[in-house]
Amino acid sequence: MNQPTAQPGLFIGMDWADQKHDIYVIDRQGKGSHQKLEHSAESIDAWVGEMLKLAGGQPIAIMLEQSRGALIYALMFREDVLLYPVNPKQLARYRESYPGSGKNDPTDAMYLSRMLRERIATLKAWRPDDENTRLIANLSQQRRKIVDGQTKLRQQLLAVLKSYFPVVLELFGKQHQLPLLLSVLRRPGGPG
């Protein structure tokens, strides 16, 4: 994916939500406006097209508080769209620098766009990982879930044995004896 080097035509802050997104757009002259966007592939696609037209051939820069998820995925492979994910703590600190500022979605979108416009020269646009890296990350995450599930089941089994059959844990309670315990539990005519 080629990263455009031109100055962005629009500075956009997006406050993500499940059903709709609050958006604040600042043009190159500094004029801002609030928008709402329904979360669907079609509406995101149409909205990006409108923003690119408004940008007059320049790329659009978008700052949002996430680095993965459906919204990032919908935006990450588009030409002329520069993404700037930001840590929520950074936004909270930025928000605190304005007196009387409270947290709400439209206001957060405005602060995201302001922060992006003010700091664009010091920020580097996010580049998505290549396909193989995303695959490895996904497989690693699935493996972690499986291991966590096995650990949870093992702990549940030990809790049940402690409650109903504590002598089994006395006989087979050592870590190296667990395979023997499982074979006894699986044996026809065994306990349970």
Rank of each mutant, 00 (worst) to 15 (best):
M1K: 13
P4G: 01
A6Q: 11
G13I: 02
D18F: 03
Q19W: 10
K20I: 01
H21L: 06
H21A: 01
V25Q: 01
I26A: 03
Q29M: 02
G30S: 04
K31L: 13
S33Y: 10
S33L: 12
H34M: 06
Q35G: 06
Q35M: 09
K36Y: 05
L37R: 01
E38G: 04
S40I: 00
S40T: 00
S43G: 07
I44D: 00
G49P: 08
E50K: 15
E50F: 08
E50W: 02
L52Y: 00
K53A: 01
G56V: 09
G57V: 11
Q58K: 15
Q58T: 01
Q58M: 11
P59R: 02
I60A: 02
I60S: 01
I60R: 08
A61W: 08
M63F: 09
Q66P: 01
S67D: 11
R68M: 13
G69D: 15
I72W: 03
Y73W: 06
A74S: 08
A74H: 00
L75M: 07
R78Q: 07
R78H: 07
V81M: 02
L82A: 06
L82T: 02
L82I: 00
L83Y: 04
L83V: 12
P85D: 05
V86R: 00
N87Y: 07
K89E: 11
L91C: 12
A92Q: 12
R95T: 08
E96R: 14
E96N: 15
Y98H: 14
S101C: 10
K103G: 14
A109F: 02
M115S: 03
M115I: 07
L116R: 00
R119L: 11
I120D: 02
T122M: 09
T122N: 09
A125D: 01
A125H: 07
W126V: 12
R127P: 02
D129W: 07
D130C: 06
T133W: 12
R134V: 06
L135F: 07
I136A: 15
I136L: 05
N138C: 05
S140W: 06
Q141F: 10
Q142Y: 13
R143W: 11
R143M: 15
I146H: 06
Q150R: 11
Q150H: 14
T151H: 03
T151E: 09
K152I: 10
K152S: 15
L153A: 15
L153C: 04
L157Y: 03
L157E: 05
L158P: 05
L158R: 12
A159M: 03
V160I: 12
V160C: 10
K162R: 15
S163V: 05
Y164V: 05
P166C: 00
V168M: 15
V168G: 12
G173S: 04
G173Q: 06
G173E: 08
K174M: 15
Q175W: 14
Q175K: 14
H176Y: 14
S183F: 12
S183N: 12
S183D: 11
R186M: 10
R186F: 12
R187N: 10
R187Q: 15
P188Q: 14
P188A: 11
G189N: 11
G192Q: 13
